[in-house]
Structure formats: structure tokens, C-alpha cells
């Protein structure tokens, strides 16, 4: 019994401390080093923040260069696909257009809703136009998806005035917020991420709610008033209640799926090439 325990100990010791032909470091040393780095990174300090920022910038740039052939290939694939499917898509679009034309536009409900939505879009556009001078455009460097985290890396950082918590839009529609700022790059947490919580307003009813990500493509609406029944295809906007996001940025339209109220985002997070970061004054210091 004690002999087998000794054998077990020898094997464990050998696995941890053995160094072979290409093993310049022992496993034990590297595990300790990883643990040390993890704990240093967990407790915020200026030195570690700077070191991480420099490392992040370096790796993001390297990654962006290493990924460029893949991006080029994807671009070519998309273009070829687009070319071949234009004809069939045109046919489908014509049919859809016909269907839409056949609908009853004179319905009072639709016209009121349309009027309200137009008003809301106008106000959101004004809000965005007011902030135009405070917008900066950034290129998407990386959009590696993880089963757990939904975020992208963009090509602007603290040098361009970006701060944590700033809202990010694409073609005028909200896509997420800044959660990590380096000198030359930033990480944007997308609305679908599990950690994303954004206060929104359902413009038609003036109802406030929280848009929460669940690691899926479509985030869900939470904290709606009890008994409130929401219809499909209702547009939601940022409420600006948190004091960070400007109010009136369009987010998406509601979809009811298996009793859950999801939001079909206007901006497709899988198709982002350039984004705009709104340089609000009231960014947050630490939220992620």
C-alpha cells in the first residue's frame, strides 16, 4: 500500500519537475509563474495595467497581421457568394416587396405606430448628430468569438480619447460598449455577451427595461413591468438612464420567442468592419 503511494508520488514529482530535450522549463515552474501572473493581474496595479496594455497592443497588432490572409479569403468568398446569389436574391426581394405593397397601410394602428417611430428615429438621429463631433471611427481588428465571451477589438485606444464604458455604434445603431482600453486598441463588449446590461426604453410605450446578453446573438429584455404585454417588432432605444449612454440610440426590434422577449439587433455583430465610439463625458472607471 505504502509502496504504491510512493510510486504515485514519484510519478507526480517526475511529471512536475522533469525537463526533457525541448523542455527548458519544468512544469512546476511554469504553473507557479502562471499563478503569479494571474494573481498580479487580478489585483489592479499601475505597473501591471501598463504591462498588460503594452502586451495587448503588441499581440493585437500581430494577430491582426496574422489574420489578414484569412480576412482576405473571407472577403473574396463573400464577394463571390454575393455575385452568384444576386439574381436569386433579387427575385426573393421582388416577392417580398410585392407582399409589403399588398399590406394595408391605411390601418390606423400602423400609421400611429409609424408616426411614433418616425418621431423616435428623428430624436435619436438628432441625438447622434449632436454627438457627431464626439464620434470617432475605428476599424475592427479582431472579432474572435468564444463560446463564452462576445467581444471585438478595435483599432483606437486611449490615444484617441477612448475611455471605459463609452457606447459604440455601427451605422447609427448600438452594438456595445468599451470594456478595455489600451493605448492603441480597445475591446468592445457586444450586446449579446453574458456580461452586457444596457438600460433601454420602449419608445412606443415609454417603458424602461434592461437589455441583457445571454451569450447568444439576440439579447433579451428584462425587468419589464409586471403584466406588461409587449408586441413583436417594437423598436427599443437606449434610455440614457445610466448617465453614460446618450438617450435615443436605436438598438433593435423585439421578437417573442418561446415566451422570452428578445431583441433582434439592427446592427449585425457578425458583419462589423468599422464602428463609431461615442466620446461621452460620463464614462465609467470600472464596470467590467
Amino acid at each position: 500500500m505504502s509502496a504504491s503511494r510512493d510510486d504515485f508520488g514519484i510519478v507526480i514529482r517526475s511529471a512536475l519537475l522533469q525537463r526533457g530535450a525541448r523542455q527548458k522549463f519544468s512544469l512546476f515552474f511554469l504553473i507557479c509563474l502562471s499563478g503569479l501572473i494571474f494573481f498580479l493581474d487580478s489585483f489592479p496595479s499601475k505597473v501591471m495595467d501598463k504591462a498588460r496594455s503594452v502586451l495587448n497592443d503588441g499581440i493585437y497588432v500581430t494577430s491582426s497581421v496574422a489574420t489578414s490572409p484569412i480576412r482576405g479569403f473571407s472577403y473574396l468568398k463573400e464577394k463571390t457568394k454575393l455575385h452568384f446569389f444576386t439574381y436569386s436574391e433579387n427575385k426573393i426581394l421582388k416577392e417580398e416587396l410585392k407582399k409589403f405593397k399588398e399590406q394595408d397601410f391605411k390601418s390606423e394602428y400602423l400609421s400611429t405606430e409609424n408616426k411614433n417611430l418616425k418621431k423616435a428615429i428623428e430624436s435619436s438621429q438628432t441625438a447622434i448628430e449632436n454627438n457627431t463631433q464626439d464620434n470617432i471611427s475605428a476599424k475592427v481588428l479582431l472579432d474572435k468569438e468564444s463560446p463564452f465571451l462576445k467581444s471585438i477589438i478595435v483599432s483606437k485606444g486611449s490615444r484617441a480619447g477612448i475611455k471605459k464604458g463609452m457606447p459604440v455604434i455601427n451605422e447609427g445603431y448600438l452594438i456595445g460598449k468599451v470594456v478595455e482600453v489600451n493605448y492603441l486598441s480597445s475591446r468592445i463588449l457586444l450586446l449579446g455577451d453574458l456580461n452586457s446590461k444596457i438600460p433601454i426604453i420602449i419608445e412606443k410605450f415609454g417603458i424602461h427595461a434592461i437589455l441583457s446578453g445571454f451569450g447568444e446573438k439576440r439579447p433579451r429584455l428584462e425587468y419589464l413591468p409586471e403584466g406588461f404585454e409587449l408586441s413583436e417588432a417594437t423598436t427599443v432605444f437606449t434610455s440614457g438612464k445610466d448617465g453614460i449612454f446618450p438617450p435615443g440610440i436605436p438598438v433593435g426590434k423585439t421578437i417573442i420567442d418561446k415566451g422570452l422577449i428578445e431583441v433582434d439587433l439592427f446592427a449585425d455583430p457578425d458583419q462589423l468592419s468599422f464602428v463609431n465610439v461615442i466620446l461621452t463625458e460620463s464614462s465609467i472607471k470600472e464596470q467590467f
Binding site: S34, R52, S63, K144, S151
Partner: peptide, 21 residues
């Protein structure tokens, strides 16, 4: 080598936005 495994992990943390280590 274990050193390469370690560095690949560090790179993965930076790219994925996970706490380093």
C-alpha cells in the same frame, strides 16, 4: 515544449480578454 504551451496560453488570454494566466 511546456514554455510554448505557456506562451500560447498567454496569447490566448489576451485575444479572448480573459484574466491573464
Amino acid at each position: 515544449g511546456n514554455g510554448h504551451v505557456f506562451f500560447a496560453g498567454i496569447i490566448n488570454d489576451v485575444i479572448m480578454g480573459l484574466p491573464m494566466g
